[in-house]
């Protein structure tokens, strides 16, 4: 990503535009605390351990887990769900392990991402991974040549997947619908 890109990325989250009263959605925090992993959101006292220990934040001008948590708590739903930086969490779970308030910070980022996909769209990489899982059972499409090579190197054939069963789970969980409906460029 170029320097220019990271600048515009920064503007999106910390944009200095004043917050208007109608932007606050006071119910938003409860949408998060109802989800698995989001229960302790309201315990956050903004100490900043998550951001200071975050490996991504060290190299990003814009990704700040504490900011995302604060935005979620304030109910800035539109801003936080459309934030590009939401997709920069590496899910290393350092923040979760070190939060003095036992907040599952990385899980809250995941909840926000799920919500962002639900109403906006899926970043291309996840669309590709998801489609591959539906078709092949695994996240990558392995070229035929590489599958053949397994035999010459003495490895057993890769087990066949069961796309019918995966499709049933994708339908029941709403995953297939998400993949079809949303495309974020």
């Amino acid at each position: 990503m170029s320097k220019h890109d990271s600048k515009s990325e920064e503007n999106k989250v910390t944009e200095s535009a004043p917050i208007k009263a109608h932007e606050f959605d006071s119910h938003f925090k409860y949408e998060i605390t109802e989800e698995h992993g989001g229960e302790k959101l309201k315990h956050c006292f903004q100490c900043g351990t998550c951001t200071s220990d975050c490996p991504i934040a060290r190299f990003s001008d814009s990704y700040r887990p504490r900011t995302l948590i604060r935005m979620a708590l304030l109910g800035l739903k539109d801003r936080v769900l459309s934030s590009e930086t939401l997709w920069l969490c590496a899910a290393c779970f350092t923040c979760t392990d070190r939060c003095p308030q036992d907040i599952e910070v990385a899980s809250i980022i995941r909840i926000l991402r799920n919500a962002a996909v639900h109403r906006g769209g899926i970043p291309l990489i996840f669309k590709e991974l998801g489609s591959s899982i539906l078709e092949t059972g695994i996240a990558y499409r392995i070229p035929e040549l590489r599958l053949k090579k397994r035999e010459t190197t003495g490895l057993p054939q890769l087990p066949k997947s069961n796309p019918e069963d995966i499709a049933k789970l994708a339908k029941a969980t709403g995953f297939s619908k998400l993949l079809k409906r949303n495309e974020k460029t």
């Binding site: 989800e35 698995h36 997709w87 899910a91 995941r110 909840i111 991402r113 799920n114 996909v117 899926i122 996840f126 991974l129 998801g130 899982i133 059972g137 695994i138 996240a139 057993p156 087990p159 066949k160 997947s161 069961n162 069963d165 995966i166 789970l169 994708a170 029941a172 969980t173 709403g174 995953f175 998400l178 993949l179």
Partner: peptide
């Protein structure tokens, strides 16, 4: 023992749909 008919653990699509990750 080879695991027949296994699928992706689910982690790659956890950011999209947690429920599907758990199901996988």
């Amino acid at each position: 023992i080879e695991m027949t008919e296994y699928n992706c653990c689910g982690l790659p699509i956890d950011p999209v749909n947690h429920e599907m990750m758990v199901a996988l």
